[in-house]
Amino acid sequence: MGQLLVNGLTTGLILALPALALALSFSVLRFANYAIGSYVTVGAFVTWWANVALALPFWVAAIIGSVAVASLAVSIDALVYRHMRERSGLTLLVASMGVAIALENVVRLFAGNSPRSFDVPVARPQRFFDIRVNQEQLIILITVLGALILVWLVFRFTRLGRAMRAVADNAALASVRGIARGRVIAVVWALSGGLSALAGVLIGLDTSIEPQMGWNYLLPIFTAAILGGIASPMAAVAGALVLGMAEEVSTLFLPPHYRMIVAFVIMAALLMLRPWGLFGTKWVQR
């Protein structure tokens, strides 16, 4: 049981980053970005390239990957989404799917279809009271917690954080208060891209990376965000942890390849019963 908890926590922690990223962009732009999975993939592959092809230390490569996807997300917004701000959310949705298809296949074009792993030294797993915790899981724990605390501090205590929350809360009033929406949106995309890329790196550390990975994570990411109440970024983190645990516990009575079905069933039940999320408060929706 303890082992299950550790594994569930790892899954949940990895999911927390892109779920936060998705909820963040949704809260500010009111549009669900289906390209988030491909940001995860691109982040993992850029890191792999820096780590293996350029032989840089793993952590340097991870930073390069995150910064690259942060800039990519900002550029995609400038190239694509910015021109559609006044359109309906549905158009943006379909456009983000187009972005996802294009990005995933750019990765395929350069990296082929076979799975790859990072060049990191293998370490012996640690044992705490009979529970096996490997080096990778510790790195994941520390990285995710670090990233989350950083985001939380920025959100809570900086002018920029207030600006992001203000735009999410009441965009019209935010502009009256002199907040430049365009700048806030750029920061949100940078953050969203960086966090997604980091998740891709951690997935690679935990298992391996392949061009399909982001696509496979799309449903769990959305489920985690919806669990938290999709417009509340920090609650998405809690949603991710709950989903990670649920997926892990489900392996007790379901074959592991059905984790996706677990995510789907949770999402469906939630949408029918508590569409504002487990942790979110009820908000107005059509």
């Binding site: 002018r159 207030r162 600006a163 929350r165 203000a166 809360d169 009441n170 019209a172 009033l173 935010a174 009256v176 208060r177 002199g178 907040i179 430049a180």
Partner: peptide, 30 residues
């Protein structure tokens, strides 16, 4: 706004999910 015109809209005139103090800070943040 920067030239010195303050504005209070009729509806939705606060940031509802932020504290009163944060609302006041946003008055001068930007």
């Amino acid at each position: 706004a920067n030239a010195g015109i303050g504005y209070v809209p009729q509806e939705a005139n606060v940031f509802p999910n932020m504290t009163v103090l944060e609302n006041l800070r946003l008055g001068v943040d930007f």
